[in-house]
Simulated scan of single mutants.
Amino acid sequence: MKTILVPTDFSVNAYKALQYAVEISKRNQATIVLMHACQLLESPFVDRQALRAAYNRNLVEEIAGELKVWKSKVTEKAKGVKILTRIYKGSVQKSILQCAIEHVADLVIMGTQGASGLKEVVIGSTTASLISKSTIPVLAIPITYQWKTPANILFCTKGFETGAGPDAPLADIAALFSAQLHVAVFNEVDKVEIHEYLEHDTALTDYRKSFRKKYKLPVASAIQLEGDDFETTLQEYVSRLDIDMLAMVPHRHGFMDRLLHRSRTRQMAYHTKIPLLAIPG
């Protein structure tokens, strides 16, 4: 993990994301790219071009000043942490994806405000939206979260993926913080057949063996969770095990499926109280 991208809108939760990136960088000397996306003023009227240019110039200068202040805050407390600042012009999501490509980012860390009900459906969240489109892992930091060194990481999955995609970021984070990794699969009550339970048991056992062999890291526990509601069941298990980070693989859905059954990973990005690591499958 050499480069961490931290988009900022200069909010409190964005600063928490930057603090988390700093904690990682202090341990592995990763470069942090602190970026902000802005929409410049456009006008088709020739007589307003000078006014528009002055406004845009002042806006960019103001943003550059804010980025400099944030960088100074961090580097004063964390000597040796390397931070680059970048300004992109355009939509937030496209700018983040473009910045990630240009700087070959290994991880995006963003703050998430959280939402519920109609607000979640209509307004949404930049972080939750990015999770469904990013080709690199996205770590969402809730606004209520207070930093602590992750000791327990829970990977909740339904596919037991063993390819380089999901496994590698999990191993990197677990090794970086010397954290214990736990794996769980969710079964909805009365909707899983006996043979599926047995298949999950076999898959969990195989996953633990494969992960240890590949990364020389143990999987502390592997369990099947059962409940009526995915989010409630998972949150209860997270509290019981004192989990510090939740990892999931977002699955891409078709348009109708997105309307009827939203991605569980995206759903958790709105409601989780601990950092959520979304790993592309």
Rank of each mutant, 00 (worst) to 15 (best):
Met1Pro: 07
Lys2Ala: 10
Lys2Pro: 05
Thr3Asp: 11
Thr8Cys: 08
Phe10Cys: 10
Leu18Cys: 08
Gln19Tyr: 08
Val22Cys: 02
Glu23Met: 09
Glu23Ser: 07
Ser25Ala: 14
Ser25His: 04
Met35Leu: 12
Gln49Tyr: 08
Ile63Tyr: 06
Glu66Pro: 01
Glu66Tyr: 12
Trp70Gln: 15
Trp70Ala: 10
Glu76Tyr: 06
Glu76Gln: 13
Arg86Lys: 14
Val92Cys: 03
Val92Met: 08
Lys94Asp: 15
Ser95Tyr: 04
Cys99Phe: 01
His103Lys: 09
His103Ala: 12
Asp106Ala: 02
Leu107Arg: 04
Leu107Ser: 08
Ile109Tyr: 10
Gly111Val: 03
Gln113His: 14
Gly117Lys: 13
Gly117Arg: 13
Val121Glu: 10
Thr127Trp: 07
Ala128Arg: 05
Ile131Gly: 03
Ser134Pro: 06
Ile136Pro: 04
Ile141Pro: 00
Thr144Leu: 09
Lys148Trp: 01
Leu154His: 03
Glu161Asn: 13
Glu161Phe: 10
Thr162Tyr: 02
Ala171Gln: 05
Leu176Asn: 08
Leu176His: 04
Val183Ile: 15
Phe186Asp: 01
Asn187Gly: 06
Glu188Met: 15
Ile194Ala: 14
Thr205Ile: 06
Phe211His: 02
Lys213Trp: 01
Ser221Asp: 08
Gln224Asn: 13
Gly227Met: 00
Asp229Gly: 00
Leu234Phe: 04
Gln235Val: 07
Pro250Ala: 08
Pro250His: 09
His251Trp: 10
His251Thr: 09
His253Thr: 12
His253Tyr: 14
Met256Phe: 15
Arg262Phe: 01
Gln267Phe: 02
Met268Thr: 05
Lys273Asn: 11
Leu276Arg: 10
Leu277His: 04
Ile279Glu: 08
